[in-house]
Amino acid sequence: MSDSMILLLAKGAWETIVMTFVSGFFGFLIGLPTGVLLFMTRKGQVLEHKTFNHTISIIVNIFRSIPFIILIVWMIPFTRALVGTSIGVEAAIVPLSIGAAPFIARLIENSLIEVPGGLVEAARAMGATPFQIVYKVLLPEALPSILNSASVTLITLVGYSAMGGAVGAGGLGQIGYQYGYVGYDVFVMNTVLVLLIALVFIIQFLGDFIAKRVDHR
């Protein structure tokens, strides 16, 4: 393998990592509050609100049903308005974040459902406000489960970012597509695969490790 090829693969791997984690971060920035709202407005919860809950739920479902490859194309005008271009890593981060957010919202909602209802009741009895219930009870108690959701999300994003590579997002996906699909270079294609697999394993391992550390149940 030539030096230039190694350099290309290293750059691709770096771009994939950046896309995964940065869009994971923005995905959580949107998805976490949405998930919390979905949970808090559920029937029987502190901020029960049927209409509000249904509205968010429908929006989340709509975004979850758009295939990612179509979401990228569909969002091009918005992406361009936001970052000035529709190709490259920066541009890919926009649809990746938007694609991950509803997925994260549902995972967060499910994590919060698992928190025993008695804990919320105890906090209410002690005079906690809804906001205090969220950040002092629900989120800390659900943290191990939220961290597991985070690794699931990041691994999904590795796959999405590779898909984005086919339409010019950069990263390992684009290398794999160009050299593998277009050029049929088996060696490069397999190297890309090995790198992607390694990345997924590392994320899963770190996720499990951290989740275990914070779990006192």
Partner: peptide
Amino acid sequence: PKQLAKARRHIGMIFQHFNLLSSR
């Protein structure tokens, strides 16, 4: 609701299943 939260601070409550926070 705000006044109620305040009033509840002076009404203690304990439960059958304790309801302690496992993360603390």
